[in-house]
Amino acid sequence: MEEFFQQLTNGLAVGGIYALIALGYTMVYGVLKLINFAHGDLFTIGAFLGLTLLTSLGLTDSIGPVAGLLVLAVMVVILVGVVGFLLERIAYRPLRSSPRLSAVVSALGASIFFQNAIMLIWGARPLVYPHGLLPNVTVNVFGAELPLIRILMFVISVLLMCGLYYLTHKTRIGTAIRAAAIDQGAAKLMGIDVNRVISLVFMIGPALGGAAGVMVGLYYGQINFTMGWLYGLKAFTAAILGGIGNIPGAMLGGLLLGVVESLGAAYISIAWKDAISFLVLILILIVRPTGLLGERVADKV
């Protein structure tokens, strides 16, 4: 039982990161119906930028670790948001009215481009965040030893998600985003600047990915230029699992995927872990073709 609980928390910790990245996927998809395969690489850029800023500015020394990391995170979020904005302008906007899959290929091209750009800038060897930035304290919860940082990371993920939910459902901008997601033409007629909404979405989504990148770097320490591909794929799976385009769905999907992976590895087989989670995904989709929280789309007639 104790081991089960431990594995559950392991799964939730990973799931929190998947969920955070999945949010970016789902937001972009909701508005543009585009699977942004470059999203995982924006996450990687966040991790690398975080490391560069951390070592070059030395903020944690000058204004203290907590404030330093906060300022750092904000800077990374802004920078990655700008990259996302540029990406949309250059690689996706010209394809707005063409077949949907053309934009997917452009996204794959962007993913290859970013991955190799990261390799050329920061090198092919894995880089390491400085040790000892975060204290190694564990908390005993129901008999399981949980590192305090994992709990913090989970809490931050959930807070960010709640913030995003608030933004999209309770504010004017959020209403505009949702309106553009439902029907761009109608939104335009209602006086919403759809292009601005799309640019905004393309800043928020990658910015969340960048934040996840910094968190991953701080917690796991090691970062490398190929890591975004795997995280991106997992996050895409999570977004689909929850019903793509749906923000609470991405959160649920991410957490569920993390837990399924962890329990599958713990009680069935580690080597078959990813196969198990894909199998679960397929089974869920056979029963619920639009994911757990996705809306059923009526056939157009």
């Binding site: 053309s102 290929v105 452009s106 794959l108 091209g109 962007a110 290859i112 481009f113 190799n116």
Partner: peptide
């Protein structure tokens, strides 16, 4: 050399942008 996949990725985007239908 080591920038070849970078160029390739950029070429993919460019081809798609200029020929949106393929």
């Amino acid at each position: 050399a080591s920038a070849r996949m970078l160029v390739f990725g950029a070429a993919m985007i460019a081809m798609m942008i200029f020929r949106t239908q393929g």
